[in-house]
Nucleic acid binder design. Structure first.
Lengths: 225, 225
DNA sequence: TCAAAAGTGTTGCAAATACACCCATGT
DNA sequence: ACATGGGTGTATTTGCAACACTTTTGA
């Protein structure tokens, strides 16, 4: 990172979003590689300015659509980072967001601004991270881990239909510990967060598994796991 | 509220803070009465602009010191409100904060800007509330209620020394339900959040009560209540 | 001696955990 | 027939909730 003079005179509101997904039994976050100073070649969260005629949430959606090719994605606001010197280009206040999507729905694409965009395991993010984005990622993962035990937030990481083993694997990846299969299934049945589709998998060299989907449409809170 | 033309050209970052305390067995929040349009005589949360050379948190502390005469107060960021039309004067993004203090430490004082500042019961806030401040208050109270059951956040609402009955009352006021005295005391002992000072109250026409203080200095999380 | 709040244990119930074997399919 | 993941029940432990009486002080 090089020292540069400040480019912006006024305080600017920006957003940065941690797009989190699960691939290969690992939590992953999307990072872009910056082309320009002051953080040339550093990795950063996708983000950008909030326009003067758009809400903060709309700005997040707009940037996600540009960089990850997805317009319907679960979003939640994390925290607003407002240290004076967090951005060497000037006074930029950034609102951090968490976005969750099953990996199949992401279409990461580089643009003129960025030489590259790809997923990194959250346990192995590159050391050259721009700004305070490492901290934002940490807040994002902490939030996900904390909400997973009292909400149905995992639904945003799952495909429409899934087996109970798939679901258990997602919980295990997020929380980093294993569950007993029988106890896990019992609990899922009790809280009736999911519904049996009466369809089954086929093709595996093993007994077919029942396919489930999440019940209802919204979010809810309850104690489980 | 009257219609006015926009006063500010650029997006501005402001803060609004819900200063919450307990008085008379009720949760209370400090509100100021505005002197000027577009919300003349409406009640609002204390708040104001974030200076270009101060962090967001410093701006919150500064405004609290001005309006509530207290410089050491527990603060936590709640949410950033970024709808385009939330302020008729222009594009103002506001970072909402929760501040907690025992009532004895607050010294609410009116200023030139505000004709009045006082505490309102959160169950009886006036109907003439400016901006989206009713929503901010709601987020503040929800956050407090939710954190009280898994953190030691009540410490910021208590005086330095207190009896177990005092402490139980605070939990009951915040959560709006009653606890069994024996179970409550048992739990407080188990989690060892508080320490016996070996001192006792005196003066009441009843048996003296042991005085306690919170252990350690920081925050922690654990399941209780 | 009375009023008022402080203080103190036990029991029953519900929820969480630990644990092992048979089933259906594809190769 | 065998390898692979799917599917199921019970016993034990632990944590939570319900419950009532005695103690100490000041008036």
């Amino acid at each position: 990172m090089k020292n540069t003079t400040k480019q912006f005179k006024h305080t600017i509101v920006a957003i940065d979003v941690a797009i989190v997904t699960i691939e290969g039994n690992e939590l992953q976050v999307a990072l872009i590689q910056l082309k320009n100073e002051p953080f040339k070649n550093y990795w950063a969260l996708p983000g950008g300015m909030v326009g003067s005629e758009e809400s903060i949430k709309d700005a997040v959606s707009r940037h996600i659509k540009m960089k990850a090719g997805i317009s319907k994605i679960h979003l939640e606001q994390l925290y607003t980072f407002g240290e004076v010197d967090r951005d060497p280009r000037g006074r930029i206040v950034s609102v951090g967001y968490l976005a969750l999507s099953p990996v199949e729905k992401l279409k990461l694409k580089a643009s003129e601004e960025y030489s590259n965009i790809k997923l990194f395991k959250v346990n192995a993010i590159p050391s050259k991270i721009a700004y305070d984005h490492k901290e934002i990622i940490k807040v994002a993962i902490t939030r996900l881990r904390s909400k997973v035990v009292y909400t149905n937030i995992v639904r945003y990481l799952m495909p429409d239909e899934f087996t109970l083993t798939d679901l258990q694997r997602i919980y295990e990846v997020i929380l980093g510990r294993e569950f007993d299969k029988r106890n896990f299934r019992k609990k899922m049945m009790v809280i009736k967060m999911i519904t049996d589709t009466k369809r089954k998998t086929s093709g595996g060299a093993h007994r077919p598994a029942s396919l489930y989907r999440f019940s209802g449409k919204g979010d809810y809170k309850i104690d489980f796991i």
